[in-house]
Design a protein around this nucleic acid. Structure first.
Lengths: 332, 332
DNA sequence: CTGAAAGCGCTAACAG
DNA sequence: CTGTTAGCGCTTTCAG
């Protein structure tokens, strides 16, 4: 390894013929330094190729200029939109973001979140994967602010930024019901996921209002991939007394459902949660529950930086609205 | 702020009635510690809620157990797939990833990369946005290994992991040419981007081989979004002597092109670089140049960890293959 | 097998 | 306006 020793501030001070502290002042842009010395120090820094060791600086000052972001799945565009938004806010504040992905594994969530705390991040944004964030309570008390994103925490006190899952699903299904549909296929991922159970509640509310009920035979769950959603809907379509409409609880379910319908030559109405790239290319009209993902990430980041900045108001929940959009069908 | 002082190893040592060093040994899992002392220390750690300060540990040992990842655009699924893959490899090695996005801004690239070096990341994976990475040469000499991803570096020495842009584009266009097409619309993003100019070279090679040439009037560039690609193709279709086929240099161009063709009721053949989510839902057959994005990220991460591990072989370029796939059309 | 002492590279107090 | 003196919390010598 060509790991020549990196020069330190001591080396710079020696080279410039000034004290360590003067070098520190120049590097930190303290105004009250003689211009001549600034010049000398700057020259030495350049000459030696000095680079301030941020880790050492942080050790002394306690801060760290990084925040942690733990999401459920970095390969999912929803979370990466959040990540991009959080990152943009952070960079603007002079912070960097350490990102980690749990792949929906509660044990990984715990390990990663605690690891980030050990790295003394200034704050943490977490999309809970498990159902117990009690392990964070201690860190929060110790002064690491935590904002929960997309799903609320259990057993830990912190701000939460969520979307209106229930209301969005309810409005979408209400439309299907208004058009006379009663037998609506429901394609869901695991109901253990907060957003899924909330959306199911919304569906239930819309049906109940119309005097209907959820038919458990039309409810498919644990559909992690478009492929699973597609097979699930194909099975429902092939069964006796098939559904006359479909509600998909996330974008992967919607993609799988559309594939199934195209393959079956069926055109029953589809509504789904989440918009997605290329949704406008869908071969027929699809109603989607949309929301502003970047805004969600921005809200979480702003909340976190408010806490880092010393905001000690009681933690609260921010719920972002959703709205129905029409996608697919004849391209405009 | 409820920032009670976090307990340090000194506090733990005092509580357990042992020396600082013994606590350190226990925490680092040194085997040669008396079981009774281990027990005592563990109990005190638990009781005080001690959390090792990784920053301080790293300061002394020089390492940092983090790697940096700088991509061009965290909102683009290509880069986030890379990020997910890199992150997975890193976590497996006990490292965390600090991610940053340049939004294709060379100045941001430089600032972010140098910032990460100041944080003493153990290594850096960088998707170059600018055309000069000379600023990194010094860091590399100082012992921070750098792997360039998706695009090669200029002015800096490091490993690079790329895909076969030229070959992929060439094969796709060769197919169109073989079917008798000569007037092929070319929808590109900025040719200043390495991958774009490489893909254009591939197109040129395929045409030249057949005795044709690129018609500059059929070449549209700087198409950053699907909307721009759509308008560009619409303009070409409306012009006299319109193209009889389309080659799209990335997935956003492909999406825009398909929109334009559907709107125009045209069915001229489309080939494009990059597969994308929902590509199978396209309303007609589209040939896409596909490649294994996660593998690309994995390759870069593995190269980086090899360097971190002390590999001092000469830096090299790894080129990953591409292949043509058929998407869209009748859903199978 | 354990502990005391000496730093890692920098910043925060104080003096001059 | 500048320099000296202590540390930040931990790991690393090197003796016991």
């Amino acid at each position: 390894m060509p790991k020549r020793d990196r020069p330190t501030m001591i080396d710079v001070a020696a080279d410039a013929g000034v004290s360590l502290k003067t070098v520190s002042r120049v590097i930190n842009g303290v105004a009250t330094v003689d211009a001549v010395l600034v010049e000398k120090v700057t020259a030495s820094i350049e000459k030696l190729g000095f680079r301030r060791n941020v880790m050492a600086a942080n050790l002394r000052s306690g801060a760290s200029d990084t925040i942690g972001l733990v999401t459920a799945d970095l390969a999912n565009s929803f979370y990466t939109s959040l990540a991009a938004a959080v990152s943009a806010v952070a960079v603007r504040q002079g912070y960097q973001v350490i990102m980690a992905s749990t792949d929906e594994d509660p044990a990984a969530e715990r390990a990663l979140a605690l690891d980030l705390c050990q790295r003394r991040v200034s704050g943490l944004i977490l999309v809970p994967s498990g159902h117990d964030q009690g392990y964070l309570q201690h860190e929060i008390r110790m002064g690491t602010p935590v904002v929960f994103l997309d799903r609320p925490a259990v057993g830990a006190t912190g701000d939460a930024v969520l979307i209106d899952n229930r209301g969005g699903a309810e409005r979408a299904v209400r439309e299907l019901v208004a058009e006379g549909h009663r037998r609506i296929a429901l394609l869901f991922d695991s109901l253990a996921i907060f957003t899924m159970s909330e959306r199911l509640e919304g569906v239930k509310a819309a049906l109940t209002d119309a005097g209907h009920e959820i038919d458990p035979r039309l409810l498919a769950t644990d559909l992690h991939t478009p492929e699973l959603a597609r097979s699930a809907l194909e099975a429902l379509l092939a069964a006796p007394d098939p559904p006359t409409a479909v509600f998909c609880a996330n974008n992967r379910a919607t993609i799988g459902a559309v594939e199934a319908l195209v393959a079956a030559g069926s055109q029953i109405p589809v509504a789904g949660f989440d918009d997605f790239e290329a949704s406008r290319l869908l071969p027929f009209r699809v109603r989607l529950v949309d929301y502003d993902t970047p805004r969600l990430g921005i809200a979480a980041a702003e909340r976190l930086f408010a806490r880092i900045g010393g905001d000690t108001t009681d933690p609260g929940v921010i719920v972002q609205p959703t709205h129905l959009v029409d996608r697919g069908g004849p391209v405009r």
